[in-house]
Design a protein around this nucleic acid. Structure first.
Lengths: 219, 219
DNA sequence: GCCTGTGAAGCTATTCACAGCT
DNA sequence: AGCTGTGAATAGCTTCACAGGC
């Protein structure tokens, strides 16, 4: 009865930045592996990821993966190790809320990438959109959210509704058991502690980019 | 001949996080102002922005804006102050590269928001897309990038091309004078120092969200 | 009493730098 | 000779906490 799942427990919390970079490393490594690369040095992976070698080594240390001084890291083993952290062997079910222009583009974007994540349901307030299948994902009226989320065991959602509705949607999803959100609406969400939100605030991002475009001073 | 542009120089560099929050504050304040609010306390703005009051005060300190202990901050003056920092009175011209599903959704998203930023040109490799007008933005063949970017004085661009093309596109834009990038392609870009890149990496974001959806342990 | 402005402290991610290994 | 693994140092954003003001 000691530990039924002795997978790999890296005692400490992994910082969110590291999680993000691990996702990037995996993507790069999958491509390199397909290209025949078997071993890789931290400086090579760092260069591909636009990071420093020390950063790469630190990240891998976080997940308890070790290489050899002589040959660097074994690519396929490293991919497996990252998979072990990012996707605990099962694929994650995700819901999309808001099937407007942006929502559809998001669905199209994710289709046939990341087989470890699957969009199993989409919701829209507009009943005309219900019961259609978009990019292989069934659209339900938002009223059925609780039922479908529960049935599918969905704990992650992508919010692509207008700003004015985002908080209401988030509240309802949270009550239905969703704990992790990818928020495309340009508002910050108030959520119960323990929930995770990743804001993809395109408005803010464009403002930042516009700001730095004007900082053409000496550098 | 002392200082022809005595605008407002807050000696130190403003951190990118602060720039992002200023953008958010402005959006919130515009709405509050439209709703008739004239004064606001740091804790009120903080609550709307899901931040701490100290954070708000520090951010405003960064741009040299001061309130009064009694009444807090004057909403409209604060909006003007943020505008002074984020948009130096002129509107910023931006180009979009890649007019696929995602590119069109991006254009649609930004249309009629943020009047201080304007998409003046879009580019696509596919000549069939050229010379059309999408959401009020003219599409050019990518070959004409240098010419159009130069003519319009464009220094900021949104990259929405497939991963495999993003670096080539970025290189060419950088050579044509673009210094600030909003990158939707799921790769990190290598750019000359001094250039600014904001990565909107949707793949990484979804992986992060999926990861934390599974961390349903005690919190 | 309750707010702002801010020096100082705290925190956490990143980078350094070097011992150890092959 | 050149790489990994990692304690220690660094850096920079955030939070604390309190003086000052109304």
């Amino acid at each position: 009865m000691a530990e039924p799942i002795p997978i790999r427990q890296t005692a400490h919390r992994i910082p969110v930045q590291t999680i993000g970079r691990l996702s990037l490393y995996r993507r790069l490594l999958l491509e390199l592996s397909a290209g025949g690369m078997r071993q890789i040095y931290s400086h090579q992976l760092a260069s591909a990821a636009v990071a420093t070698p020390a950063q790469v080594r630190r990240d891998l240390m976080m997940i308890g993966f070790t290489g050899s001084p002589r040959k660097g890291y074994a690519v396929d083993e490293l991919i497996a190790a990252v998979n072990g952290v990012l996707a605990q062997s099962v694929e994650t079910s995700v819901a999309l809320v808001g099937v407007g222009n942006l929502g559809r583009a998001i669905l199209a974007y994710y289709t046939n990438r990341q087989p470890w994540v699957r969009f199993v349901a989409a919701f829209d307030r507009d009943p005309d959109k219900a019961n259609r299948i978009i990019h292989g994902c069934r659209v339900y009226p938002f009223e059925q959210a609780e039922e479908v989320l529960g049935r599918e065991g969905i704990r992650a959602a992508v919010i692509a509704v207008p700003a004015a509705e985002a908080q209401r949607v988030a509240d309802r999803l949270a009550l239905a058991g969703v704990r992790s959100f990818l928020n495309f609406a340009p508002v910050r969400l108030h959520l119960p502690t323990g929930a995770f939100v990743d804001d993809m605030d395109m408005s803010t991002a464009l403002d930042r980019v516009a700001y730095y475009a004007r900082q053409q001073r000496q550098t």
